[in-house]
């Protein structure tokens, strides 16, 4: 209990961050495979746990709790954004790349 508290108050360093991101990507890849956009959505929770339970466990082990929550909440938005851009490109809409801006 005391040990856990100490770990929480120290920010993850580069190595830990990258490990966390890798586990996140593995978990999200699994969700992608099973067409789960929002793993927090009550109707998806069961399938997510069944299909990607081990990846989820690894994800939660490698990342601090607040990050897990953050990434899971962020996922639907990222997917939505990606889809919008993809649709726009398919419909022949021009995506304006501002000078110096990130892609």
């Amino acid at each position: 209990m005391f040990f856990a508290k100490k770990e929480e108050s120290e920010p993850p360093k580069r190595g830990k961050r990258e490990q966390c991101w890798a586990s996140r990507d593995a978990y999200f890849a699994c969700l992608d495979k099973h067409d789960i956009i929002n793993p927090l959505d009550p109707k998806n929770v069961k399938t997510a746990k069944k299909e990607c339970g081990s990846e989820d466990k690894q994800f939660e082990k490698d990342c601090i709790a607040s990050w897990v929550k953050y990434f899971k909440e962020k996922r639907p938005f990222d997917i939505k954004k990606e889809r919008m851009l993809k649709e726009a490109a398919e419909n022949g809409q021009e995506i304006v790349q501002m000078e110096g801006y990130r892609k």
Binding site: M98, E99, G100, Y101, R102, K103
Partner: peptide, 12 residues
């Protein structure tokens, strides 16, 4: 803002 890439920010 976050929308800048490193090179764009450097230029600015």
């Amino acid at each position: 803002g976050r929308n800048y890439e490193a090179e764009g920010a450097v230029e600015k």
